[in-house]
């Protein structure tokens, strides 16, 4: 196919890593719009670091609280830095629930949810964006409308359905719906797939490629940044989901981390082990942070739109 032989055009500065240094610099200037003086880049960097620190505060606060002793938590005003490191809070947090079993359950649900959701949403979004058929945009409005269905009213009918299927206390109610696309992700992907020039698709069709092949071999790699967003959102959604596991998973063998965290917060006399709760929370979100750090680079691989020139 002609498409795979085109030379990728520079999409963003990071793609230039392989190219020689002077050119990299030039592209950087182009994106920022002007020649940068050393001090303007220093100021930008300081602003960036400041903004990042602001957004890191919640995590810092969680970690600091997780390391404090119960008595230190009663200090007024709160101490910004733990006086002593109580690493045992992390150990206690892990021991307070079947952490590793919950971890495994959550991981399985998340991985399957992400795969199903990326695949199904991509196929459907392709149908709404890359194929042209009569009534397409009207039908798409229905997709948008379904974004506005309030979740509490779906809880009971859906539970009735899954209970009749015998799916309570299994992961199926949390995983299977991902096979059927979701309005949010279809909408998201459609917005990006619509930006792919029709000419490119039509050219491939003239080459007698099947739609299925065009979808997976041409469009899928092109839409990688948006697909990464879908993957990240569905991973975070599945990992942190509380309401679903709450009503569908009643058996400790199948429960997830979010249930474990919530159970932590419910004690008699409101005497929450705050430091251990924070330690558990840090452990729960740590894999997500790592995951994001690893996968954010797919935003770098700008799509090779220019390639069809």
């Amino acid at each position: 196919m002609t498409l795979t032989t085109t030379t990728p055009q520079p999409r963003g500065p990071e793609d230039e890593a392989a190219l020689d240094a002077p050119k990299r610099e030039e592209v950087g200037r182009a994106r920022d719009g002007s020649r940068q003086k050393w001090y303007s880049s220093a100021i930008a960097r300081i602003l960036m670091i400041g903004l990042s620190l602001l957004f890191l505060l919640p995590l810092y606060w969680m970690i600091a609280s997780a390391l404090k002793s119960g008595q230190e938590l009663s200090h007024y005003p709160p101490t910004w830095f733990p006086q002593e490191f109580h690493w045992e809070n992390f150990v206690n947090a892990v021991n307070a629930m079947p952490f590793w079993s919950f971890f495994r359950n959550t991981a399985v649900i998340t991985v399957l949810s992400v795969i199903f959701s990326v695949v199904s949403n991509f196929i459907v979004a392709y149908g709404f964006a890359c194929l042209e058929w009569k009534g397409r945009d009207r039908v798409f409005y229905i997709v948008l409308a379904t974004l506005f269905i309030p979740f509490p009213v779906t809880l009971i009918p859906m539970f009735d359905l899954y209970a009749n299927l015998g799916w309570v206390n299994t992961w199926l109610p949390l995983i299977v719906p991902n096979l059927f696309a979701s309005a949010f992700f279809v909408f998201l992907l459609r917005q990006f797939l619509l930006q792919i020039p029709k000419d490119m698709l039509d050219a491939a069709r003239l080459d007698a490629a099947s739609e299925w092949a065009i979808a997976w071999r041409l469009v899928f790699p092109t839409a990688l940044p948006a697909l990464t967003a879908v993957g990240i959102f569905s991973a975070v959604g599945a990992w942190n989901d509380f309401m679903g596991p709450l009503i569908y998973l009643q058996d400790v063998n199948v429960q997830t981390l979010s249930i474990g965290l919530q159970a932590f917060r419910q004690t008699n006399q409101q005497d929450i082990q705050f430091n251990e709760l924070m330690a558990a929370s840090v452990l729960v979100i740590a894999p997500l942070i790592i995951l994001f750090f690893v996968f954010q680079r797919y935003f770098l691989k700008g799509i090779t739109l220019g390639g069809f020139k």
Binding site: L155, I156, F159, D160, A163, L246, I247, Q250
Partner: peptide, 10 residues
Amino acid sequence: TSIITAVRGG
């Protein structure tokens, strides 16, 4: 929430 759904679902 959890008890209503559980009772309904048996």
